[in-house]
Design a protein around this nucleic acid. Structure first.
Length: 803
RNA sequence: GCCGGUGUGGCGGAAUGGCAGACGCACCAGACUCAAAAUCUGGCGAUGGCAACAUCGUACGAGUUCAAGUCUCGUCACCGGCACCA
């Protein structure tokens, strides 16, 4: 018996060896492959087995690509700005820089336990001034291009985090981070004009090899719709109100109009009798939180006292205010066609407004509509010249027709809003803008970047909704770079997304003092070939990164428009009953003990074995025993047979080629759980063969190479034990030969009417007639009655259909 | 409400329309052992039968097919996303 498997010794040994002789080196000849992990926020609680899974997936993929002859760019870094460190600072008085550094060193130690081929020379940290210099630089560039602008308007405000939020950060009316109900607050904010890129962000989704689900989520978020803007005159005045509608075909059915309470004309439409009610309604709406507005589906509203004129039929229709109309979508005003829109219908019913049907469903007009008919299917009625037209046709043509008639114009709309980019917090990149009374907003000159984040005494946001930076007078007061007169610095900081929107560019040139990334290195190493991370970033991070990349493309910094060619979202590892692992739930499983008891290789393989990588999986410690046993059996098989000089039999050769084929196919389709079960199956098969005739060395060596992406220490050790002085990663990924894979004989199920009655073994190349004859023979007595049909699927099945 | 996804043994899960349950966990029995652990061998969907075997079985109901976990239609359940977007 050979030495038993000792994971501690082996793993220590190879860690040291790899440090001296790295296995993933850029010799300048190999083609590059950029495999990127979503970089972590260095939280205080460290890594659990769920984080491991993602990092193991990307490392398996990286090592597989290495074996296919690539130099793999596989970096890691830290998304280290953000609220937790700042809140910790408020509570404990520790500077975020200190707690962040501590967390990073702890997590780095844990990540090293994974034994991934990360290249730490490429490490980046978003809070490093040498990094955020460029985060600020991009902002200055955007400002100069007119993409960053200031605006005062009611933004999403989290009362608990005491900061403004982007639309993307509001989930069901609550703060994405802390879950507190979001309110509106009127504040001066920095905005990024992401809407200017809406069409490109939408259209370029087609180019991406991403999960359809994520592409759809992004498309839905951008929310492009086609329709028309129609102008309505306010009766008795020369004022006009413009509405946006996707259903201009129903224009004749518009019997009232509703404005958002925040609409600029809301107040002036009130007449003496309605003035008080209108002002009350506007005030009440402003006080309601988003959650409130969303939960309460019951329509509220107030009549302004004014009327508009429907331009298509000159009918007078009342103008109402209601908070079901959103101020920041379309024009903040809508025409209401209660017969063909659910919300308008509910509103009209509640307030007794007439309902006029303009599309006849199934050619019928309905007298007392019970619900709105929202399909654009049917013939137009009550619609003047449009009567008799098909609604579906009219829906497409109406925008152009309306434009020709001079009633409005054809237009498109998006749900995507500009990005609220400023935060009233300390631990983020200072926005490099100086407010000068004479020159207006002046960016900090590029040669003066980075604008360092100053020290503060208190991290607590100020009561006025300003950042703690506002309290540092000597920092705030500065000279205008333009005219030299006294001016004030912007005190807001950037959101956490600022650094993560471009970090993947910096890895490949992280020490460059002159440029964000040199053009040469960018075009040589990017874009990212494979991006691996959780699906929770399907909208925010991925959309922002795409936006930044397109901007950098436009200003000539990079020569690609999409940062991530391929995307893989791994599922979450949960505790029992699918409960998310968290410190507060007490169900966090730390990898540390498992690595100690079973070894890194066993944990890596078990992480892959728990289930399909794209699905969530409940963690169960017990399963790792199975993987550990498998590794031991494999170890013993190789160690006991490596020196026996067995000549390969036909069966051994066949098994080897089949193994290469199966494992490669499963890897290519990212079915990593079945790769592991495949190893187990072939291991069982090899053990069985070894018992009979021994096993040849080439088959053993092949299996070691195939397993190397999954169990690196084990495979290096076995490879060395088999007499090789170079690393197992010096090999090329094995190839299979179709001919060699072919079986001589096949087991064929013999069925009557689709039910298996016998199983026979036939020569693989048998002809149809002989196969059927053999099949019928095997059935014997069971074959009674009239044979209607005989089916032979080579290598699989014989089915005799009888009456 | 709309849009996705999923539904298979006690459990995790596997099956290019072709023998459902690979592989593993747990469990049961046997071997080894003074004994236990470890290891090895065998068993392990349900019902009936001593047995060979038979019947049923992939959420539920229809359908297409020689053949359906897989394709089509409908229903239910759970998960995820969006949610008054005019």
């Amino acid at each position: 018996m050979a030495t038993p498997y000792n994971h501690r010794e082996i793993e220590q040994k190879w860690r040291k060896n790899w440090e001296k002789n790295p296995v993933n080196v850029n010799d300048g000849k190999k083609p590059k492959y950029y495999c990127l992990d979503m970089f972590p926020y260095p939280s205080g609680s460290g890594l659990h087995v769920g984080h491991w899974r993602g990092y193991v997936i990307s490392d398996v993929w990286s090592r597989y690509k290495m074996l296919q002859g690539h130099y793999v760019i596989h970096p890691m870094g830290w998304d280290a700005f953000g609220l937790p460190a700042e809140n910790y600072a408020i509570k404990m008085g520790t500077h975020p820089r200190k707690s962040t550094a501590d967390n990073i060193s702890n997590i780095k130690r844990q990540i090293n336990e994974i034994a991934a081929v990360y290249d730490w020379d490429m490490e980046v940290n978003t809070t490093d001034p040498e990094f955020y210099k460029w985060t600020q630089w991009i902002f200055v560039k955007m400002f100069k291009e007119g993409l960053a602008y200031e605006k005062e308007f009611p933004i999403n405000w989290c009362p608990s985090c005491k900061t403004g939020l982007a639309n993307e950060e509001v989930v069901n009316g609550c703060c994405e981070r802390c879950g507190t109900g979001v309110t509106k607050k009127n504040l001066r904010q920095w905005m990024l004009r992401i809407t200017k890129y809406a069409d490109r962000l939408l259209d370029d989704l087609d180019k991406l090899d991403w999960p359809e689900k994520v592409k759809k989520m992004q498309a839905d978020w951008i929310g492009k719709s086609y329709g028309a803007e129609v102008n309505f005159k306010v009766d008795g005045t020369d004022k006009e109100i413009t509405v946006y509608t996707t259903r201009p075909d129903t224009l004749h059915g518009a019997t009232f109009m509703v404005l958002a309470p925040e609409h600029e004309m809301a107040k002036e439409l009130a007449v003496d009798e309605t003035k008080k009610a209108v002002e009350d309604y506007i005030y009440q709406s402003s006080m309601r939180s988003s959650v409130d507005r969303m939960q309460d589906k019951d329509k509220t509203g107030v009549f302004t006292g004014s009327y508009a004129v429907n331009p298509i039929n000159n009918k007078k229709i009342p103008i109402w205010l209601s908070d079901y109309v959103l101020a920041d979508y379309g024009t903040g005003a809508i025409m209401c066609v209660p017969a063909h829109d659910d919300r308008d219908f509910a509103f009209a019913k509640k307030f007794g407004i007439p309902i006029v049907q303009v599309i006849a469903k199934d050619g019928q007009s309905i007298d007392n509509m019970e619900e709105a008919y929202t399909d654009a299917v049917g013939v137009m009625v009550n619609s003047g010249d449009w009567n008799g037209m098909e609604s579906a046709v009219l829906k497409k043509e109406a925008p152009m027709m309306i434009e020709k008639m001079g009633l409005g114009k054809k237009t498109t709309n998006y749900k995507l809003r500009d990005w609220v980019f400023s935060r009233q917090r300390y631990w983020g990149e200072p926005i490099p803008i100086i407010h000068c009374p004479d020159c207006g907003n002046v960016p900090v000159p590029e040669d003066q970047l980075p604008l360092l984040l100053p020290e503060v005494e208190s991290y607590q946001p100020t009561g006025t909704g300003e950042s703690p930076l506002a309290d540092i007078e000597e920092w705030v007061n500065t000279a205008c770079p333009c005219c030299g007169k006294p001016a004030k610095r912007e005190t807001n900081t950037m959101p956490q997304w600022a650094g993560s929107s471009w970090y993947f560019l910096r890895y490949v040139d992280n020490k460059n003092k002159e440029e964000l990334v040199s053009k040469e290195k960018a075009s040589k190493n990017l874009p990212v070939d494979m991006y691996i991370g959780g699906v929770e970033h399907a909208v925010l991070h991925l959309l922002y990164s795409r936006f930044y990349t397109k901007f950098l493309y436009d200003i000539g910094m990079v020569d690609f428009e999409e940062p991530f060619v391929k995307l893989f979202n791994q599922g979450m590892i949960t505790g029992k009953n699918g409960i998310k692992m968290s410190k507060s739930k007490g169900n966090v499983v730390s990898p540390d003990d498992l690595v100690r008891d079973y070894g890194c290789d066993s944990l890596r393989m078990y992480e892959m074995f728990v289930g399909p990588p794209e699905l969530d999986a409940e963690w169960d410690d017990r399963g790792i025993d199975g993987v550990y046993r498998f590794i031991n059996r494999f170890w013993n098989l190789v160690m006991d047979n490596k020196d026996k000089n067995v000549t390969a039999t036909r069966e051994m050769i066949r098994t080897r080629h089949k193994m290469v084929y199966d494992i490669t196919q499963r890897l290519e389709s990212f079915s990593l759980n079945t790769v592991i079960s495949g190893f187990m199956e072939y291991n069982n098969k090899m053990i069985e063969m070894a018992k009979k005739d021994g096993i040849d060395k080439e088959t053993l060596e092949t299996s070691v190479i195939l397993m190397a992406p999954f169990a690196p220490h084990l495979c290096e050790e076995l490879w060395e034990a088999m007499g090789h002085s170079e690393s197992v990663y010096e090999n090329q990924w094995p190839q299979w030969d179709e001919e060699a894979m072919k079986d001589d004989e096949k087991e064929i199920a013999v069925q009557i009417n689709g039910k298996t009655k016998a199983v026979i073994t036939l020569a693989a190349d048998i002809d149809k007639d002989s196969a059927l004859t053999a099949g019928k023979e095997a059935l014997g007595d069971k074959l009674s009655g009239n044979i209607v049909k005989e089916i032979y699927v080579p290598g699989r099945i014989i089915n005799i259909v009888m009456k």
